[in-house]
Nucleic acid binder design. Structure first.
Lengths: 347, 347
DNA sequence: TTGAAAGCGCTAACAT
DNA sequence: ATGTTAGCGCTTTCAA
């Protein structure tokens, strides 16, 4: 009765525009126009097509659309991992910033592709854009590869990086004010009368380097010389840090304050100090970094440098979308402040 | 000198196979075969093409490839949100399961699309598959819409849901053993000699319902009748729960144990109980659920029902990929166990 | 206001 | 071992 092409089986072939067109008794062009809200189509036709599409759960094939339009509304979010330790996404701060970005992208009508890449090869992140999967890149952290990020920017890839602002930086970054954070934390310890202040964090990472800079600034302003023996380059992955921290605090019994570069590190040091029989905050005051919600529940409740996570997500997204519009952007620095609790109480 | 088509401007047009072909002096088919590792191509040609592609940062256009191949290697991960409270991704448990899924998908060579949808319209998640953006769906939580999930499954969409196993379930689910978790938590409180055990959680959510079932089982096995007055249907978003919890614990001074349905709720109750001057665990023992790493640092350290997050991510992914191979799968239940700490110590 | 037809970049059947 | 060619499903010019 009909001359339809042979349909393979009962197995449901995926619906396409031609099907909607046939059922609506119009051409595919009209369906395309209707579904894209073109004014060139009769309102009642448009309605009929729209209803039909909805009732059949038809959605425009995005591979075809992207191919034809040569663009897409997907952003790749790249969370680097440490290839040596095969470390998985675990730092709650990174996870929460991913959540904030997801919300911001959803608000703007963009899809988010979440990718893991080896932190030693941040340049691999470019693949998502080169292959047309994503329109732009959001990279969480600079790690040790400022140079690779510069190469991405030199290739004119739309990329925004969460991290510190560095000299000779070709890419746009968004980050907290790390120097200020390190300084505020240290000044607070000084105001508590502490003079032997330890610094926990791997200063090979740009953000940590800036926090240490702030730590130094505060010490010097108080007439103290930074003592390298009080700096522990603890890795981000806390499980590896425990033994180091035990040895460190055991070897330096004069330490009476700790400025840590993540809440995880600070929480770990709380435990280690307790294991060594040192009382917090009476003998040793402890300050974390990031101010994760759960950290407020620690024993004792953790003081921390607050980073504006949800604002960070929004700024990263806004910066990248502006860049996609062709705008050139300067690095952005977000304010930080102290959240004081019992581990390093207000005076 | 050449008859190349007019190239619009100095502005870099995106590289494509034809460019590589021209530069390598072969046809596009050969490039396609070389890049896809076909054995039909001369090894040395293949090497030349591969080198050329890499040196020019060429990546196959995935929209075109997906269109042609009628498939893709992307999985959509759906994290529902509460539209009323405009609540964002914040529960650390969901975030950590997203991280675990990201790792598992990366291991399998799949991309992950992270999507937020209104928890009242889980069916909207289907769009990612209908539009060909993703091959399958991983939905985090059933919320109140078992029915909508069944509809997705009835449409033969490849979908796996994190959550409880329910009667008349058409979709594949992966989840912790919630009845066991509720029972273990409650039995432990009973073994501590507690008889007035509160249950915190909204039993309209399937997982919570099962945990309450386990809680009831343990009570009955001990010869106690469940007392509805001891059940507080606290919402997942803790900020809303605080006042409720204050009133609740104040109205029931006889409560000497708390079984909470998330670590967040448990941590919140720790604070509320302290505000009411009740000592934990001496007067009231508290048990959380999920056993998030940061919860171990609370004051006092939180006991919790441990859920195997990274295993959960791996199982969700494996189940979905099997389903994409055409396998039919039964729901999967993962073991849980208690992590005992000071808030509800071992006897 | 609508339809016909070309082509986005790729793969694979077919030809050589 | 390599090339030619026909679409994958869509948007958009062009023609009516």
């Amino acid at each position: 009765m009909s001359e339809e092409k042979h349909v393979p089986r009962a197995e449901q072939r995926r619906l396409q525009m031609a099907d909607i067109a046939r059922l609506a008794g119009v051409s595919v062009s009209t369906v395309s126009r209707a579904l894209n809200g073109s004014t060139l189509v009769n309102p009642e036709t448009r309605q009929r097509v729209a209803d039909l599409a909805r009732s059949l759960n038809y959605s425009i094939n995005l591979s075809a659309q992207n191919l034809r339009l040569q663009k897409n509304r997907t952003i790749a979010v790249v969370v680097p991992y440490d290839a040596d330790s095969r470390q998985h996404i675990s730092d709650p701060f990174f996870l929460s910033i991913v959540g904030a970005i997801a919300d911001a992208l959803t608000d703007r009508g963009y899809d988010m592709l979440l990718q893991r890449v080896d932190a030693e090869h941040l340049d691999q992140a470019a693949h998502a854009v080169d292959s047309g999967k994503a329109a732009g890149l959001l990279i969480i952290g600079q790690w040790r590869h400022h140079d690779q990020l510069n190469e991405l920017a030199a290739r004119k890839l739309p990329v925004v990086v969460w991290g510190a602002q560095l000299p000779q930086q070709l890419y746009c970054s968004v980050g907290g004010d790390n120097v200020l954070g390190g300084r505020l934390a240290t000044e607070h310890m000084l105001s508590l009368g502490r003079r032997r202040i330890a610094f926990l964090g791997d200063a090979e990472l740009p953000e940590v380097m800036h926090r240490r800079e702030g730590y130094w600034q505060a010490l010097r302003a108080a007439g103290l010389a930074p003592d390298p023996a009080l700096e522990l380059p603890a890795p981000f992955e806390v499980s590896m840090a425990r033994q180091q921290m035990l040895d460190f605090f055991d070897a330096h019994r004069d330490i009476n304050a700790v400025v840590a570069c993540s809440d995880l590190l600070a929480l770990q040091s709380l435990q280690v100090l307790r294991a060594l029989g040192r009382r917090v905050p009476e003998e040793v005051a402890v300050m974390g970094y990031d101010d994760m919600p759960l950290a407020a529940y620690s024993d004792p409740p953790l003081s921390s440098v607050h980073q504006p996570v949800s604002k960070a997500g929004a700024e990263l997204v806004e910066a990248l979308l502006k860049m996609l519009e062709g705008e050139r952007l300067a690095p952005i620095m977000l304010p930080v402040h102290l959240s004081l609790r019992a581990s390093a109480p207000a005076r």
